[in-house]
Simulated scan of single mutants.
Amino acid sequence: MLASPLPRLLAVLSAVCWLLLPAAATARADDPVELSRDGQITDRVGALGDRTGQVEDALDRLYDDERIQLFVVYVRDFSGRSGQTWSDETANRNGLGQDDVLLSVATHDRQYAYSVDAGSPLTDEQLRDVAGTAIEPALRENDWAGAAIGAADGYGSALAGRPVTAPAITPGPADPGTGGSGSTGARDFILPAALVVGVGAVGAYAY
């Protein structure tokens, strides 16, 4: 009498499902995020804490003065993607346009990127100036709110023809969302030139 093929078929199907589940989870993790619909801040790691209001004020100030919307997003990591790719795809997914800027920060991996539409009034030189003067000094000291405030004020100054200045630094937790509170210390930055990829000018850095 021949053995029923059903147990063997079930075993094969179980093995296939087991192999597919990690791949599906990875695909979901790699997807760019949907930005908050409640404002211009998406903070998935609690990086801003009680300074959210200060960041909102800076974002509002930039829009009132220059009609530029700066969106900021804080995540643990970029899910294995480069900062440029992650930020660019997030900007595209959320339909950001020429009057928008996206600042993406991966707090655990200590990387960040910015995405700007190719038609933005901000030039590559201005973007690099703001990155080096107003964003990176804050990130090196784990001042997550200061980086967003520095970006907003820096873009406003650049568009108004004023010098971009460094923000006042208020150090924060090194790895928000994990309970870590100590500073990791300053690290060297990797500073590639801004690229035009998909949505427009993109700069990606490690800090």
Rank of each mutant, 00 (worst) to 15 (best):
E34R: 14
F189C: 12
A134I: 08
G179I: 03
Y63E: 14
A131D: 15
L102V: 02
V16R: 08
A47W: 02
P121N: 12
V116H: 02
T170I: 00
G182Q: 13
V202M: 04
G150Q: 05
G172E: 03
Y205F: 12
S115I: 04
D143L: 03
I68V: 15
T178G: 09
V45G: 09
V116N: 04
G95C: 02
T184K: 08
G161E: 00
L62N: 11
L102I: 02
R81V: 00
S157K: 14
R67D: 15
A152W: 11
A145S: 04
A25W: 14
L127E: 07
P121A: 11
A152L: 13
A158C: 10
V105G: 10
H108G: 01
L122V: 15
A25G: 13
D60Y: 00
E34S: 14
S104E: 12
P22Q: 12
Q98P: 11
G182P: 00
T170K: 00
T85M: 02
V55D: 00
A147N: 05
A148S: 11
Y74T: 09
A131C: 03
D57M: 01
S36L: 07
T26K: 12
P7R: 10
S181G: 12
Y74I: 09
T165L: 14
I169G: 07
G203Q: 01
V202E: 09
L96G: 09
D117N: 15
Y205Q: 06
L139C: 03
L9C: 01
G146I: 02
D99Y: 08
V101L: 15
G97T: 11
G46I: 08
Q69F: 09
D65W: 05
P176D: 09
E141W: 04
Q98D: 15
S14V: 14
V164S: 04
L59W: 07
P137C: 02
T42L: 06
G49S: 03
N92P: 00
I41T: 02
G119K: 02
R81T: 06
T90P: 07
M1W: 10
V101H: 07
Y63V: 03
A174Q: 13
Y207N: 03
A3M: 11
G80L: 05
P5M: 11
A3H: 10
A27T: 10
L102H: 03
V12C: 03
D30H: 13
A201P: 00
A113T: 05
V164F: 03
D109W: 07
L70C: 09
S87I: 06
F71T: 11
G46N: 07
I149N: 01
A27M: 10
I190E: 12
A24D: 06
G177R: 08
D77R: 12
D65V: 11
L19T: 07
Y112L: 15
G200M: 05
G53H: 10
T107N: 05
A151P: 11
E66I: 02
T184Y: 14
L35H: 08
D124Y: 00
A15I: 13
T42Y: 04
V116D: 01
I169M: 07
A204N: 00
T26M: 13
W86E: 07
T90E: 09
D77Y: 05
L102W: 01
C17D: 06
T184G: 15
F78Q: 13
D99R: 15
N142L: 03
S82M: 08
D153Y: 10
V75L: 13
T26W: 14
D77L: 06
A58H: 07
L139R: 03
L20N: 05
S36M: 07
S87K: 06
A58K: 08
Q111S: 09
E66P: 01
E66Y: 02
R93Q: 15
